[in-house]
């Protein structure tokens, strides 16, 4: 059939498009690398340090075991993030911090709380609740899946 198709269109303009996109890639402004790396470093460092301080506090004040103290520290960080996201401060930190604010557990908590706040306008059930994990979903799904695989491997090893 002599109908135009998308593949045909791409094939015909391949050379032109490659030339253009390569040029665009060349002239598009990049993140100012050194500055953003430095920002990511100190903001990420401070968040981890805060985690450690909270961990030590929980451990010393309530004389808890390492595992529980670690969980308490993470929960505290999550609480702080949810609060900062709500008052609209977290995205300003993230503007400078980049990887520094989203790699720690704060990024994960922000992804969930920002989605919850955003979709509240469609109601509690179909908005807030059903869009809860739109952004953080991949982390949870892949996390549970990979933990299952690890469990499976250990189970099989344990059989012998």
């Amino acid at each position: 059939m002599d109908m135009p198709t998308g593949d045909q269109f791409k094939q015909q303009n391949k050379v032109r498009n490659k030339k253009y996109t390569d040029y665009v890639e060349l002239v598009s402004p990049k993140q100012t690398t050194w500055k953003s790396l430095l920002n990511a470093f100190w903001i990420g460092g401070v968040i981890c340090l805060l985690g450690q301080v909270l961990f030590d506090l929980a451990k010393i004040l309530f004389s808890l075991s390492d595992d529980i103290a670690q969980t308490i520290a993470l929960i505290a960080l999550i609480f702080i993030t949810a609060l900062l996201t709500g008052i609209g401060v977290f995205d300003k930190i993230a503007y400078y911090g980049g990887g520094g604010s989203f790699l720690p557990i704060t990024g994960f908590a922000n992804a969930i709380s920002s989605a919850a706040i955003e979709f509240k306008s469609e109601g509690i059930i179909f908005g807030l609740s059903s869009k809860f994990y739109t952004i953080a979903g991949p982390v949870i799904v892949n996390g549970i899946l990979s933990s299952f695989i690890v469990g499976l491997i250990y189970y099989i090893i344990g059989l012998f």
Partner: peptide, 17 residues
């Protein structure tokens, strides 16, 4: 922003372009 990108309060760095 909601239609094309993500929630308003999501802390994601925008591309320089």
């Amino acid at each position: 922003e909601r239609q094309f990108r993500g929630p308003l309060e999501l802390g994601a760095q925008k591309q320089k372009y």
